[in-house]
Design a binder for these strands. Structure first.
Lengths: 350, 350
DNA sequence: CAAATATATGAAATCGGTTTCAATTTTTTA
DNA sequence: TAAAAAATTGAAACCGATTTCATATATTTG
C-alpha cells in the first residue's frame, strides 16, 4: 500500500509549482506546450491519479448523476439504464442508481440520499405511489436539474421525456377495432402515472372515434405484474358477454394473461385479440407472438442523459416545462390478427 | 441558490468549535449528550448537509463501490444488481455501475475509471473476452478488495461467489438421461469463463457416469444470444442422427432454439427434451415451459455486497482465494419430460 | 481534601486539488 | 530600441470535514 502520488510530488520532481501541474493536467491554455508534455509524462510515469474528492471539494461539483428508478429488474428499465450508462461513461460522469420499489417513501428517501450526495443532476422515473413532487424541490431550489422520463409529472422547472402514450394506445386500440373487435378490455396500471392515464385516453378516444361505447368496467387497474395478469384473466372470464379484444399496458402482464386465458380454453386471437406494450423479449416467445408497442428504452436513456448534461453544463438557461417525445411503433404479430386476410407480420411506424 | 451551511456556521451559531460539531454529528462518545442534542437540532434547523467530499478527502475513503457487469440489460444481471443496490443502500454505500459489453478492452477501461474514482471495493462479473486479470492488480496492490461473482476467475487475493455450476449441469444432464435421452447436445458459451467450462464438465461427467459417450461435436459454443439459439437449432437439424436432448447454458438461447426447432417440425420434449439455465421469466412463457436451473440472482448480489463490506471494513484479514457457493435448484417443467409417467411439475432442491 | 482520573471542548494541521492575483519572462508593436 | 502586450509561472488562500494533541473542568478515589 505505497503512498499516493499528488500534484505536489510531481511539482517537486520537476521543480515546478503545484499550480502549473494542476493546470497542465487540466490542459489549461496558459501552460507551455513543452511543460505540459513533461508534466504529463512524469504523471503517468509516477503513477499519479487525480483525487476527485479534493477536486470536487474545490470545484463544488461532483461529476455524479443520480438515477431513481422504480425497479432495476425490469427489461424496459434495464435497457434505459444501459443507454444512460453508455453516455455517462463516454462523458466521464458517474451514475448513482437507486430503486424506489414503487413506493413513495423509498423514492423520497432515495431523493434525499441523492441530494446529500450532491449529485449534479437527477433522472427520475416515478413510482406508482408518488403523489407530489415535494422531495425534488430541494434540487430545484439549488438549481440542480431534474429530468423525468417515462413515468413523468408536470413541473414547470423540469423537462420530461416520454413517448406519445396517447397516440400509441390510440393506434393499438384502433388496430384491434380494425381487426373486428367491438368489446375491448384495457388492462393498465395506477392512474396516478401519466403513462397509464394517457394510454387510457388513447384507448377511450379510439373507441369513441370508431363509434364504440366506452365501458367503465372494461378498464382493469392492476399492478401490471405477472400475477396481476392471471387475476385479470379471471376477471375477464367472468365477464358477460366475453370481450373480443384486450389491450394491456405491458408485455409481462399481457403474456401471463394470455397464458391464463389459453388454459381456460380461450383461443388467441380468434376469441380474443391481444396487444401488449414494451416489446420485451417475452413478447416474441408467447404463442401466438404478441402484438406490442416498441418502446425505445436504450434510446430514451441516452436522450435523457444527454438532455440532462445540456442542462447541467448549459449557460443556465433551462428549457422549462418542456417535454420531449420519442417515436414508438406498433409491432403487429399474430396475437392481434383476427382477420386472417391480413399479412402475418408487418410493422407500422407511427 | 443560497449558500451551503457548513459545520463552521453551526459552530459559530452555537458558540462552539467546529471540532465539537463534527464530533457531535458523527455521534462521537466524547461529546456531551446535551451538546449533541443542541448541535443536531441546529443542524437540521439550519438545513445543514454534510459535504461528502471534504469528508472523503480527509478520511481517504469514498463510501463508493464499483461494479463491472457484462451487460445491464439481462434479467440475471439486473436481479443481481437489484440485490446489490438494496444492501448498498441500506448500508449507506453508493454503487457505481458500468458495463463491459462483453469486451476485454471496455472492462479494462472501466476498471481504470473505477480505480481513479477510488472505489473502496470492486465487484466484477467477467466479460466473455477477458483473458487475464492484470487490470485488477492495481486494486489489489492498494489493498482494495475485489470480488468476482458468477463469471469468476482464480486469484489468490480475491473471493469468488458462484453457484456450483458443475453440479447443476450434472443434475440437469442426468435428468435428461433419466428421461431416456442418449444423445444429448450441449449449447454453451465462451469456455474462457468458468460458468461454461464447469457446466461442460458437469455435462461430460454425467454422460460418463451413465455410460454414455462424450461426443466432441455435440458441444456447440456460441454467444448465447437469441440469434445464437436459432443458429444452434440449424446446426442441430443438420446432425445425423438427430439428438434427443439439449442442455443449453441460458434460457434466452434455449427458448429461441426451441422456437426454431418447433418451426422445423421437431416436437419438444417428445423428439428432443430441452433444459435451460437461469430461470428467467421467458422460461415460463415458452411452450412447453422450460425446465431450467434456478439461479438466485438477487441473493447472489446481496451476498456479494455483504462479503465485500466485510472485507472492506474488516480488520485487514482477508479470506483469500476463497470461493462461496450458493445453492441452485433444478426446476423441472414440461420441456424435459419425455417419459409422460412423471409428474407434470416438480422441483428438486439440489 | 489532595491527587488521580474522567469527561468535555478546542486550536491547528491536514487531506489534495483549484483559483485569484501578482510577478516574471518573452514577444510584438510603434 | 523602448513600450506595450502576450505568454508563463507561482504564492497563497480556499473548499469543508477530520483528527491529533493539548487543555480545562468535573468527578472519583485514597
Amino acid at each position: 500500500m505505497e503512498k499516493e502520488i499528488t500534484i505536489y510530488d510531481i511539482a517537486r520532481e520537476l521543480d515546478l509549482s503545484p499550480t502549473t501541474v494542476s493546470r497542465a493536467l487540466n490542459d489549461h491554455p496558459a501552460v507551455n506546450h513543452k511543460t505540459k508534455q513533461r508534466i504529463s509524462e512524469a504523471a503517468s510515469q509516477m503513477g499519479y491519479r487525480s483525487n476527485m474528492f479534493a477536486s470536487n471539494l474545490r470545484k463544488q461539483r461532483t461529476n455524479t448523476i443520480g438515477l431513481i428508478v422504480p425497479r432495476l429488474d425490469s427489461p424496459f428499465h434495464s435497457s434505459v439504464i444501459a443507454g444512460m450508462e453508455k453516455v455517462a461513461n463516454e462523458e466521464g460522469y458517474n451514475l448513482i442508481i437507486s430503486q424506489s420499489l414503487e413506493t413513495a417513501h423509498k423514492e423520497k428517501a432515495n431523493a434525499n440520499t441523492m441530494f446529500n450526495s450532491r449529485v449534479d443532476g437527477l433522472l427520475v422515473s416515478l413510482s406508482f405511489e408518488t403523489e407530489n413532487l415535494d422531495h425534488f424541490e430541494s434540487f430545484i431550489a439549488k438549481g440542480i436539474p431534474v429530468i423525468f422520463y417515462d413515468r413523468v409529472a408536470d413541473h414547470k422547472d423540469c423537462t420530461s421525456i416520454v413517448i406519445d402514450n396517447l397516440q400509441a394506445a390510440y393506434k393499438a386500440t384502433s388496430h384491434l377495432i380494425e381487426q373486428g373487435c367491438t368489446n375491448i378490455v384495457h388492462i393498465t396500471g395506477n392512474l396516478k402515472r401519466n403513462v397509464y392515464t394517457d394510454r387510457l385516453k388513447g384507448y377511450k378516444y379510439a373507441l369513441v372515434d370508431h363509434d364504440l361505447p366506452f365501458v367503465e368496467t372494461n378498464v382493469l387497474i392492476s399492478q401490471m405484474t405477472e400475477e396481476a395478469g392471471i387475476e385479470a384473466a379471471q376477471q375477464i372470464l367472468r365477464m358477460n358477454p366475453l370481450p373480443d379484444g384486450i389491450f394491456v399496458s405491458n408485455d409481462l402482464c399481457a403474456v401471463s394473461c394470455i397464458k391464463a386465458l389459453k388454459k381456460a380454453g380461450i383461443s388467441i386471437p380468434k376469441d380474443m385479440a391481444v396487444i401488449g406494450f414494451n416489446n420485451d423479449a417475452i413478447s416474441r416467445v408467447i404463442e401466438p407472438n404478441l402484438t406490442t408497442v416498441n418502446y425505445p428504452g436504450q434510446e430514451m436513456g441516452e436522450v435523457a442523459l444527454k438532455v440532462l448534461l445540456v442542462q447541467m453544463n448549459g449557460t443556465g438557461e433551462r428549457i422549462p416545462g418542456n417535454t420531449i417525445h420519442l417515436r414508438s411503433e406498433l409491432i403487429i404479430r399474430e396475437s392481434s390478427l383476427k382477420s386472417k386476410a391480413s399479412n402475418k407480420k408487418k410493422a407500422i411506424i407511427m
